[in-house]
Computed example of a mutant assay.
Amino acid sequence: MKLFFIVSLFVYSINADEYISSDLEPLTDEIINAINALNTIWKAGKNFDGSNKIEMDKLIVTHEETFNQHFTNKTYSTKLREHTPETFDARVVWPNCTSIGKVYDQKKGYPSWIYAAVGSIADRLCIQTGAEIDVEATVEQIIRSNGGFNSKYNSANIGQAFNYWSKKGIFTVKSSKDSSCLPLSSKCNQNDFKLDKYYKVTVESPDIWLDKMRDIMVNGPLPAYMEVYSDFPSYKSGVYQSVSHRFLGMHNVKLIGWGVENGVHYWLVTNSWGTEWGNEGFARIRIQRATFGVQSSMPSVTFELVKTPSAIPKLYQQDQLFCLA
């Protein structure tokens, strides 16, 4: 693929008269009809089992946060960039890593950042080491401990979590009973689980969009934040590009690949709004400069297994514990 490919993706823009009214409420029949009347490159429809009573403040951040967390830039060579394929799907490339294709659900009021963060670590740990993580169990115990993340709905910064793991490292944990026994929870005794392995975590951020693509190809899915507008909750099919000016807040998703539909280039995205939303929980979002922020840092993690006993921390926090499936 040539370098001019990615440049051509940013040329398209929507005319001012192709936006829906900002007065339309999310998830209503009125907003769905208004979106579809534009006959754009995607279709709206009823999500969340047809309900328009979803508490959107539990799904997205309703206030501004500093999501841009700057990590060391990771740049791939021009030669590697030029070999980026036109389509890619991490679920197909790594079928044994089932966390990549799993859609999680924020119905409990848990924030999107924790599913994107824990999910991408689970994906990449599986790809790089073969270890499979129980994402739901890990999310539950991190929410319970709330160590340094401020997990009130979506008020945390996803970069804060990756900074924490890069400083502290992570442990994989084996349960000697069943998955309902979470480390150090009221359901467990100290002997009900044991530490498995300890990994140092390195966090970098791919530089340009072709580097982000290459990073996904080499290491696995990337977590990303996006601006959410009033039309996005009604996304159903096609390649999404916002047709609304009404800003609802910020949200975290996972980029698991990319492709082309009718000449339109898109990111393949895993959301955390359950399988009743979108295309069974997935979305195709147009690749353009503003979609995930011009300067947005997408944490790219790699792991180093620590085998020397003296180099393994004797003390740990629950937020470092990732439950093995």
Score class of each variant (00 low, 15 high):
residue 173 V to C: 07
residue 199 Y to H: 04
residue 185 S to G: 05
residue 207 D to N: 05
residue 130 G to R: 11
residue 205 S to L: 04
residue 203 V to H: 01
residue 188 C to A: 10
residue 144 R to A: 12
residue 165 W to A: 15
residue 153 Y to L: 13
residue 144 R to L: 08
residue 173 V to F: 01
residue 167 K to G: 10
residue 151 S to R: 00
residue 190 Q to P: 00
residue 193 F to R: 06
residue 127 I to G: 10
residue 197 K to V: 10
residue 153 Y to S: 14
residue 135 V to H: 00
residue 135 V to K: 00
residue 131 A to E: 08
residue 177 K to N: 14
residue 155 S to A: 12
residue 150 N to W: 07
residue 163 N to W: 03
residue 167 K to S: 13
residue 161 A to F: 10
residue 131 A to L: 09
residue 171 F to G: 09
residue 198 Y to H: 07
residue 137 A to V: 10
residue 141 Q to C: 03
residue 138 T to N: 03
residue 137 A to I: 07
residue 160 Q to A: 15
residue 159 G to C: 04
residue 196 D to Q: 09
residue 172 T to L: 04
residue 159 G to W: 02
residue 203 V to C: 06
residue 140 E to Y: 01
residue 167 K to Q: 11
residue 131 A to M: 08
residue 203 V to D: 03
residue 164 Y to W: 14
residue 205 S to D: 03
residue 140 E to H: 02
residue 175 S to P: 00
residue 133 I to K: 03
residue 125 L to M: 12
residue 152 K to W: 08
residue 180 S to G: 09
residue 180 S to Y: 10
residue 154 N to S: 15
residue 163 N to C: 12
residue 145 S to N: 10
residue 129 T to Y: 01
residue 196 D to V: 12
residue 191 N to C: 03
residue 129 T to F: 00
residue 128 Q to G: 02
residue 187 K to I: 06
residue 196 D to E: 12
residue 154 N to C: 14
residue 166 S to Y: 08
residue 187 K to Q: 09
residue 198 Y to L: 08
residue 184 L to R: 14
residue 197 K to F: 05
residue 140 E to D: 05
residue 172 T to N: 02
residue 152 K to I: 14
residue 126 C to T: 15
residue 195 L to W: 01
residue 145 S to E: 09
residue 172 T to A: 05
residue 195 L to D: 05
residue 167 K to Y: 05
residue 170 I to R: 03
residue 197 K to P: 01
residue 158 I to K: 00
residue 133 I to L: 07
residue 138 T to F: 02
residue 173 V to K: 07
residue 188 C to R: 11
residue 169 G to D: 04
residue 162 F to I: 14
residue 166 S to T: 12
residue 175 S to T: 12
residue 138 T to Y: 01
residue 133 I to A: 07
residue 140 E to A: 09
residue 187 K to C: 09
residue 127 I to Q: 11
